[in-house]
Write a protein that binds this DNA or RNA. Structure first.
Lengths: 192, 192
DNA sequence: ACGAAGCTTCAAGAAAATTTGAAGAAACTG
DNA sequence: CAGTTTCTTCAAATTTTCTTGAAGCTTCGT
């Protein structure tokens, strides 16, 4: 009864037979993107567009994925801002059409460039500030506390070295150059 | 007189002067980890431990970060499970003490190995299923729909190729070997 | 210029996650 | 072995994030 039910469902709704496969792929990519820090809808929408031979309208998207048109608009806007989806225009049509940027590599690069690098830099700044704060405080401490603070300073500088190394690696990645992760490892090989 | 003032400051809050810097660093790393898909507390706790010359108790941690002991226990448990923190034991002490795994490189490797690889594999499986579903449906379609499905199949196989390439890269990364991101790029260079 | 169609933004509601206090287990001490 | 101390688990509550329907804008055709 369950397999029959599926067949029925497919033809009853006047849904193409491949819709289910499409949704499954969209879901997989959606999860991947969610895990990567984006909204799940972004991945789903992008996938639907990526699998479509021609541009789609927001109405088609919201119908396919069964989400409200405002949700489509929201996530689609993000996708456009990330360059993952382009607005296209059709002569004689009033609605906007959307198509996926089909070079995943380009997308990855852009995200790393805009987002990951920023993130690392912010962490870096915060670490530097913390280090400076420690240094400025160090003078007025007794011997025991000074030892303590020196330990922290050593550790903080290791973290800084790491995050600078990470920044460098992402830079290389974005430039499409080869990367050697051992740089990360060696960034923390000064003391034990 | 100025040293006296500093001393006062120290004792008024009964907080060491460097506490603030420590918290700032913890916050920075916490954000980084949150962005990376972990609970923020995990990063904060790890950082406090990493910056401490000696192991700390849960009580000290919850006091330092101002979070409940149950939250400490929860996130600390995760950290131990990820190998980011070790339980240590002190003769004569009843409480457990915790210390940070100080090799960040080891940690990164472990996370990529356990989590990212799994994630990619899951996506891969879902994509394969979708592809198979399309193939099994292809027979019963008219010409137009068949063309449509063939387009999807081509795109899906590109996604598969990409994610297999990604899997390979992560493998290399985990093994500490050099990586060339151009493998990703070339994974989608069959058609336009 | 007016009306309609489509897109976006917003505030309210729903869902999901994190956080916590309290209760339960486990481990140690006297 | 009873009584503590410490750690963990759980359900309730809070906070945060997501989703939606409605209202506001903009653009286009007449």
């Amino acid at each position: 009864m369950s397999t029959a039910a599926v067949k029925q469902q497919e033809s009853n709704d006047s849904e193409p037979l491949w819709r289910q496969a499409e949704l499954r792929a969209a879901e997989a990519i959606g999860r991947l993107m969610e895990f990567w820090g984006f909204r799940r809808h972004m991945g789903r929408l992008w996938t639907i567009l990526y699998l479509s031979p021609e541009p789609l309208t927001t109405a088609e998207l919201s119908e396919t994925l069964q989400i409200s048109s405002s949700a489509v608009s929201l996530s689609l806007g993000d996708l456009v801002r990330w360059g993952a989806v382009r607005k296209t225009w059709r002569p004689g049509e009033r609605k906007d059409f959307y198509e996926a940027e089909s070079s995943v590599w380009k997308l990855l690069r852009r995200v790393y460039e805009r987002r990951e690098l920023n993130l690392i830099r912010e962490a870096n700044d915060a670490l530097s500030e913390a280090q400076q704060a420690l240094e400025s405080v160090r003078g007025g401490l007794g011997a025991a506390e000074r030892r303590r603070v020196d330990f922290m300073r050593k550790r903080l500088s290791r973290l800084s070295a790491l995050s600078r190394a990470g920044e460098r690696l992402v830079h290389l990645l974005v430039a499409g150059r080869a990367i050697n992760p051992s740089e990360l490892r060696s960034a923390e090989e000064d003391d034990q």
